[in-house]
Amino acid sequence: MTEILVSYFIFPGFLFAAAAGMIASWIDRKVTARVQWRQGPPLMQPFYEIRKLFIKETILPADGSPWLFVLAPFFYLASIVLVADILFLALMNPSLGFVGDLIVVFYLLALPAVASIMGAAASGSPFASIGASREIKLLLGYEVPLFAALLVPVIKSGSISLGDIIIYQQSYGALAGSFSGIIALIVGIMVVQAKMGLVPFDAAEAETEIAGGCQVEYSGPLLALWKLGKMIMLVVGPLFLVIMFWATGGWLILTLKYVALLTVAILIRNTNPRLRIDQAMRFFWGPMFIAALVAVIAAWMGY
């Protein structure tokens, strides 16, 4: 029992994932700044930001549901930390996982979006409800191609456990090296971009348009939980792709691969305008779904 608690709250769960998330968030802001020819913030800036929010006042909405409003960020953070924990454990010891943890991760990755929708609905603000409706549509959009793309490693390795997929890749080479694997990885990058809520799929928060979307009414410590969750999402998203499609090499190589995928996401974010929500859905249900289907068929035929 203590082992599970330590694993969830300290290493490699909450504390470790939060530290990694802050570094990822710093990389995000620094690369963005360099793309825009600026200096960018210091390494500790994400930490300062979280620390500051804990001294601020929390305002509960007058015409919302305060209970749900307070619970939603905890729900968000808890689910995302659980995914981080499962992924890190699978990487550290591939033979330890349980059967079907891939399915668990797939569903846990949908929970943060559900939590934002709950929080937005509880805050009773029109901006938040627009954000929530967009978040629902985005969720409907990207789950379909993600599911199809994840079938590729499952077909190739013949297993639905993360550990087996990692072991398969370490003995037969990375999945991204095969035809079906690289297509599925590209689909995965797009889906993870949307899961992390980065441009071009950030219609749900859209600061300049609906003032922060789902989290518009949050302030103080509760906002800190959302921000922390988003930072951990920056770790979990690309790491999940590394595990599914590119899991070869020691921990140093794996870290470099993770940073490479994170940088790709940041560059996509900095070179694209925001898509309207209908364009985003069409993009996921059209080209992305077809590409994922092609990858599945190719994997079925052994390419």
Binding site: R29, A33, Q36, W37, R38, Q39, G40, P41, P42, Q45, Y48, E49, K52, K56, I59, F127, E207, T208, A211, G212, Q215, V216, E217, Y218, S219, L223
Partner: peptide, 21 residues
């Protein structure tokens, strides 16, 4: 903008008064 870049000191513009200091 790049010449002054106040994000170096952690100053950012936000979209909602609830997120502001």
């Amino acid at each position: 903008t790049p010449r002054h870049d106040v994000e170096r000191f952690g100053i950012q513009l936000v979209g909602s008064i609830r997120h502001a200091d």
